[in-house]
């Protein structure tokens, strides 16, 4: 049985955001609202120093698919709506989810309100009770009056919500999730089980993301981890796990750290 994980090569990553856009298209996630990010693939940007001696680093973040996933422990329903698949993916079932947000509270990489917590991101997002997911496509207000189309018009003409919706079929997940539940990255399991790579991996123009079986020493992820020292994230404030620190045993690794520096010549 494989144990899926991801390695992100920070020296290859240019912080272009193609993975985030690819993910939004593939998984039909909605726009940020009310302290929820809805970005299954997101970013942490770090700026250090004082002009002109400044450093800048970009770090793509996503669900770490932890081996000791606290979100799974926190899920109250039976059978659990948040669970580990045999191949190590932290899976979420949208039918059994009751929307209590305990997973969001338990996950060190998530916040129930990113803005209030001053967090950088949240891998778990919550579709508010009684609301509509993708409210933008119900909105009849035009961006520029009598000039542009409204979201509602676009959705009507395209016949779907959102118009570029990727209609994947997954036993646990709808391609657009309902309101009143949480949602998160599922490592594009609908693609992985068909032998494809997660869409963020495919879309990365710099090939900075490597996805594969951590238990197979011959896999690209294992080779990359053997060749380089790696770090893992500790929380959604951008801190890293120190050497020897296990945390929740995240399965997303970062190699070859990189900071862009402005130097006086």
């Amino acid at each position: 049985m494989p144990k899926y994980g991801m390695v992100i090569d920070l020296q290859k990553c240019v912080g272009c955001g193609a993975c985030a856009i690819a993910c939004k298209t593939e998984n039909n996630t909605q726009d940020r609202a009310d302290g929820q990010r809805f970005n299954w693939a997101d970013f942490v940007y770090k700026e250090e120093g004082k002009f002109p001696n400044v450093k800048f680093a970009a770090m793509p973040v996503l669900c770490n698919h932890c081996t000791d996933a606290p979100c799974v422990k926190a899920c109250p329903v039976k059978p659990k709506a948040m669970f580990k698949t045999p191949d190590g993916i932290t899976m979420h079932n949208d039918e059994r989810c009751i929307g209590c947000q305990r997973c969001q509270k338990a996950c060190p990489y998530s916040s129930t309100d990113v803005d209030k917590d001053k967090a950088a991101y949240s891998v778990l997002s919550f579709n508010a009770h009684g609301g509509t997911t993708h409210p933008f496509y119900k909105d009849e207000k035009e961006l520029i009056k009598d000039c542009t189309a409204s979201g509602a018009q676009v959705a009507k003409v395209a016949g779907d919500m959102p118009p570029h919706r990727t209609l994947y079929k997954h036993p646990e997940y709808e391609s657009v999730r309902r309101s009143g539940i949480t949602e998160k990255c599922i490592f594009c399991e609908h693609r992985v089980k068909n032998g494809e790579q997660p869409y963020c991996v495919v879309s990365c123009p710099a090939k900075a993301r490597i996805f594969g079986d951590l238990s197979d020493p011959g896999s690209d992820v294992s080779k990359a981890l053997k060749a380089h020292n790696s770090v893992q994230l500790k929380n959604n404030k951008g801190e890293l796990l120190k050497a020897g620190e296990k945390g929740t045993k995240p399965n997303v690794y970062y190699i070859r750290s990189y900071k862009a520096e402005a130097k006086k010549v």
């Binding site: 109250p76 009751i98 929307g99 209590c100 947000q101 305990r102 509270k105 129930t112 009770h129 009143g180």
Partner: peptide, 8 residues
């Protein structure tokens, strides 16, 4: 006011 109960 964590509203977990609203979900359950």
């Amino acid at each position: 006011d964590c509203f977990s109960c609203v979900g359950i």
